[in-house]
Amino acid sequence: MNERRTSTAAPLARLIEEFYRLPGIGPKSAQRLAYYLLRMPAADARSLAEAIVEVKEKVTLCSTCQNVTEVDPCRICTDAGRDRAIMCVVEEPLDILALERTGSFNGLYHVLHGAISPMDGIGPEDLKVSELLDRLRNGETTEIILATNPNLEGEATSMYLSRLIGPLGLRITRLARGLPSGGDLEYADDVTLTRAIEGRQEMDGA
């Protein structure tokens, strides 16, 4: 914010300024947060400050799967109990959290850190695609699951990757796209419904 005559103490003004730079924080929210911190017990404030410093100093990207980690290679990549033949490709580190929560996948991951978006000028060179290819060429992977988001960018990314990986002769699969649990059939769009029909599964009548 600009230099103006103000009664705000300089350290407080600086803190407001720092908060203002965060996404989704406007000038008023920045002030509110800063004044809240001011009244906070010193120990809590110190702990918050340390957490911020620590996250920047200790968290890096895993050199293998590109996930955020504090040890390199990360815990998933070094876990001997995981199936090294199957790899799940996701857009963001948060997607790993979601997939891990299900407990139904026990392979390795690869994080692209984004999706191809031709209109925004985001191409494969902006993602961790060459790292993925290196891993697939040298690794023990036999199946790759493309788990990008089921939207236009995610689909474009998956199509591009399957084209790129195709010549390596691996089994390439894509997460099923169809009706969400808790959804309503009458509100489903044609593309989703068509995919749901195509991907229908046998029901066990027993």
Partner: peptide, 27 residues
């Protein structure tokens, strides 16, 4: 409510990239 989803464009990367070009140029 969808009137047309142009599914043929979505399932083919070459066509999809061209359709996105059309959308971007219009924009």
């Amino acid at each position: 409510e969808t009137l047309a989803s142009f599914r043929g464009l979505r399932d083919d990367l070459d066509l999809l990239s061209r359709a996105l070009y059309v959308a971007e140029l219009t924009d």
